[in-house]
Amino acid sequence: MLTLGNIEFKSRLILGTGKFSDTETMVKAIEASGTELVTVALRRFNRDKPDDDLCAPLARLKGITLMPNTSGAMNAKEAIRAAQLGRELSGSSFVKVEIHPNPHHLMPDAIETYLAAKELAADGFIVLPYIPADPVLAKKLEDVGCAAVMPLGAAIGSGGGLSTAEMIKLIIRDSNIPVIVDAGLRAPSEAARAMEMGCDACLVNSAIAAARDPSAMAKAFALGVETGFAARQAGLMPKSEIAVASSPLTSFLGK
């Protein structure tokens, strides 16, 4: 079980809801993934497109908890405000703190993220911050009461994979809270690798939404996460610098 705050989840795959071609495709992908936690963003109501809001289709899904993000916030103050509005709408205390002021690379602002996470955790939110893969920052976020840390694998939407693997390993080594890879994953094999390394969950959006068949890719990611976690539980064999024969190197035939 993945425990975030005081809530337990069977699935270790968290889905983002952005970039899907239409709502129905998104709903089917969520169902196919088996996820129990999905992220949503807060934006201004569009009078010209009143049906754009995701509340109705998401409310139809059973067993799904919403985690509003704070995207669009440029600093801690704006993120805190977004989190409060998100809680008001979702009825959920989960918040993905996401502050990335530069639209070119969308790298998280570590300082503002820390300030927002600290205040929101103190205010009773279940805080999951999206962060650079920085083990020092991750530990500080644990100390102020975050429910998990979510280091990036690569830039948001880039499909760059698990480019920060070595840093994420350092985060996992010292962390007493779940470590969730968020952003950058492109292939289910990368999700499996993250789980084998010791991650507790993966958050995936673009790789599923931009796949030719999003539902099939959602299922593939679910299997990748499950496989990687099962492999870690099973215990990977130690690595060796040289060959280690599977059979004795004595008593050959004809000798």
Partner: peptide, 10 residues
């Protein structure tokens, strides 16, 4: 006044 709602996001 700002009126806000949920949209897709990661």
């Amino acid at each position: 006044v700002e009126v806000l709602t949920f949209v897709g996001g990661g």
